[in-house]
Structures are given as structure tokens and as C-alpha cells.
Amino acid sequence: MKPVIALTKGRLEKQFTEFLKSNGYDVAPLLDKGRRLQVETDDFFAVFAKGIDVTTYVEYGIADLGIVGADILLEVQPDVFDLLPLPFGKCRFAVAGLPTSEVRGGKQRIATKYPNIATKYFREQGKSIDIVKLEGSVELAPLLGLADDIVDIVETGSTLKENGLIVKEEMFSLSARCIANRNSLKLKKSILAPIIDSFRMEEVAR
């Protein structure tokens, strides 16, 4: 029996494939998958989904392990076991906005895809804010006056710069995470342990 690993489609999928390759795994099936949403390798079955859905597949035991961004774990807080950080998908949360923006009375209005993370961060600072939940490019909100500032993931900062925004506060750093179904860790320990240990050894090596 092979374990099932749910992978976040897109950038994390590609970075995880490179991570596996550097760790001695045969990644040819992952590279040649075309439009298929599930692939079998010599070591595991892989399924490909959006990040938020990866946590759902793992939580319900469809997948034993999952590769997902820490931002989703912090925002959604799914009932999964957060095993370990991985040495890719590194970025940071930040508060950003126009250099000239300032809150003139009332609550600061924050546009974000991550209302839970933003609310918790400002609450810990003793601040009360109004949240505007957006799903698309949050950088647009301060440009059009919808919000004073934004809370979002920043990698290179190029998108902010191109839209005339700056980082005002660094919040915290994060990376990709390996998560596990709680029951799988107990019932499939013998087949999951070698894979999990190889991830840990690679992390230590780096």
C-alpha cells in the first residue's frame, strides 16, 4: 500500500517536485502528468488540488500527507497534524499601503484575503480594525480608497512596488508545511515514516 500525498497546485507543486528530486525520488511521473489530477509514482500516489482543498483531503483521510502553505493553516486552522516546515515556499506576511496613507479618525480599514490572521495580529497589538475580505488582488484596495492598508503575503515585493505600495509593518515569516491526517499517522506509520524521515533529513541538511 502506497501513501497518498495531496499537493498544492502551482508554485508549491513545482518547488516540492524539485525538493523530492534533490532527495533522490523519481519525479518523472510528476513532471509528465499533463492535466491529470492524480499520479502514481514509485513511492506514493499524488493528488493535485488548491491549497485550501489540500487541507480538506488530508483532514478527511483521503490523503495521508499534504503539502500546503502555512498561511492556509493559520487562516483556516484545519483539523490536521502539522508535521514540519519545508525548505521552500518561503515568504512573509506584511501590512502594506500607500506611503502617504494615514487613518483619519475611526478604525483602520484593512483589505485582505486572510481576515482571521489580520484580526488576530492587530488584536494582539491592542488595535481594533475593520476588515474588507477580498479574494483577488488586494493591492487594488488602497489605490481605489476601499481600504487604508492591506495584509497580504509578500515574497519579492515587486507587485507592491509596481503599484506604488510599500511595506509598513513586517508581521512574520512562513514557509510550506507538511501536514498529516491524524489517523494515518497511527494506522499507516510503517509506510509514512520513511517519507517523513526523508523530509526531515533534507530539512536538517539545509
Score class of each variant (00 low, 15 high):
residue 45 F to A: 03
residue 176 A to Y: 02
residue 108 Q to F: 03
residue 132 V to W: 05
residue 97 G to F: 03
residue 141 A to E: 10
residue 50 K to L: 13
residue 90 K to C: 09
residue 49 A to C: 02
residue 109 R to H: 00
residue 63 A to W: 03
residue 171 M to D: 11
residue 21 K to D: 10
residue 97 G to C: 00
residue 120 K to S: 00
residue 193 A to L: 15
residue 131 I to Q: 00
residue 182 R to G: 01
residue 185 L to D: 00
residue 2 K to Y: 04
residue 63 A to V: 08
residue 123 R to N: 07
residue 90 K to M: 05
residue 70 A to K: 11
residue 36 R to I: 04
residue 83 L to R: 04
residue 53 D to G: 06
residue 148 D to V: 03
residue 180 A to D: 05
residue 164 G to W: 15
residue 40 E to T: 10
residue 171 M to N: 12
residue 56 T to R: 14
residue 177 R to K: 15
residue 5 I to L: 10
residue 148 D to C: 04
residue 145 G to E: 08
residue 34 G to V: 03
residue 99 P to L: 10
residue 38 Q to M: 11
residue 146 L to I: 09
residue 56 T to G: 09
residue 72 I to L: 15
residue 153 I to P: 07
residue 68 V to S: 11
residue 15 Q to N: 12
residue 171 M to K: 11
residue 136 G to Q: 05
residue 139 E to R: 05
residue 42 D to A: 15
residue 159 T to N: 15
residue 7 L to V: 15
residue 166 I to R: 12
residue 29 P to I: 12
residue 57 Y to K: 10
residue 26 D to H: 08
residue 63 A to F: 01
residue 102 E to D: 11
residue 97 G to K: 03
residue 164 G to F: 14
residue 103 V to E: 06
residue 5 I to W: 06
residue 176 A to R: 03
residue 133 K to S: 01
residue 119 T to P: 02
residue 94 A to L: 07
residue 36 R to Q: 09
residue 205 A to I: 05
residue 152 D to P: 00
residue 95 V to N: 03
residue 95 V to G: 00
residue 149 D to F: 12
residue 199 F to P: 03
residue 63 A to K: 04
residue 136 G to W: 04
residue 59 E to G: 07
residue 133 K to D: 01
residue 100 T to H: 12
residue 179 I to S: 08
residue 54 V to H: 04
residue 87 P to G: 09
residue 191 I to A: 11
residue 67 I to T: 08
residue 50 K to W: 10
residue 134 L to N: 05
residue 95 V to K: 04
residue 82 D to V: 15
residue 203 E to M: 12
residue 161 K to Q: 13
residue 3 P to T: 00
residue 200 R to T: 05
residue 17 T to V: 15
residue 86 L to S: 08
residue 64 D to E: 06
residue 43 D to E: 13
residue 113 K to P: 00
residue 194 P to I: 14
residue 72 I to Y: 09
residue 157 G to F: 12
residue 189 K to R: 11
residue 7 L to M: 14
residue 196 I to A: 04
residue 130 D to F: 08
residue 73 L to E: 10
residue 144 L to S: 11
residue 27 V to I: 14
residue 136 G to I: 02
residue 144 L to H: 09
residue 174 L to F: 02
residue 101 S to W: 13
residue 97 G to D: 01
residue 204 V to M: 03
residue 72 I to G: 09
residue 36 R to Y: 11
residue 196 I to P: 05
residue 170 E to G: 08
residue 186 K to M: 13
residue 55 T to M: 01
residue 47 V to K: 08
residue 36 R to S: 15
residue 84 L to G: 04
residue 161 K to D: 05
